[in-house]
Simulated assay, not measured.
Amino acid sequence: MGDCIFCNPMNFPEQKIVFENESCYFLQSPKAQDILEGAGLIIPKAHKQTVFDLSEKEWTDTYELMQDAKRLLDSEFAPNGYSTGWNVNPVGGQSIPHAHFHIIPRFNDEPFAGRGIRSWIKSEENRRPGRVSKVL
């Protein structure tokens, strides 16, 4: 995929490859660092559109880089927590159609502290039109 920014991470000098292994990279970009220091992505080197397309090897290599990234981020930034996860397809929040795993250090003093990946399932404002609560 010639135009995919994650297939060609070296084409974007502002992205820093922090770690890599056989099938994946752990990247950080200055734009993300400007908001929450340490935030980064683990991406497969091969073009895979979503997390559901990853091979077993890519899963294993993602896990390895996640552990490496956590050790680094813990030592450099001492976050109070983490948000991690995958977005899938545009409605799920995926803006680049190449699978990527977010590792986001979280800090007690940030304005959105405590808002994790489940925040949208806890919000009545996100209820789908015409859906009625089944909780008694």
Rank of each mutant, 00 (worst) to 15 (best):
D34N: 10
G130T: 05
P30T: 09
F12V: 12
N87L: 03
I117P: 03
E125K: 14
G130C: 04
E124F: 06
W59M: 08
E125V: 10
A39M: 01
I17K: 07
D34L: 07
S55F: 10
K57F: 03
D109E: 14
A39P: 00
A46M: 07
R71N: 14
E56C: 01
S95P: 00
R128Q: 11
E124D: 15
N89I: 07
V51H: 11
F107A: 08
T50L: 07
R71K: 15
S83H: 08
S29M: 06
R118N: 08
V18A: 00
S133T: 10
F6S: 12
G116W: 10
R71C: 09
A99G: 02
N87G: 00
K122E: 15
H98R: 07
I96K: 02
D74P: 01
N87Q: 08
S133W: 07
D74C: 02
D68V: 03
I5V: 15
P79S: 08
G38E: 05
A32C: 08
S55D: 13
G114V: 02
F52I: 08
L136C: 06
L27N: 04
A69L: 05
P90M: 09
V88A: 14
K48H: 09
P44W: 01
A69S: 12
G93S: 05
A39D: 00
G81P: 02
L72H: 10
E58H: 05
E22G: 09
N89G: 05
G2M: 15
F107Q: 08
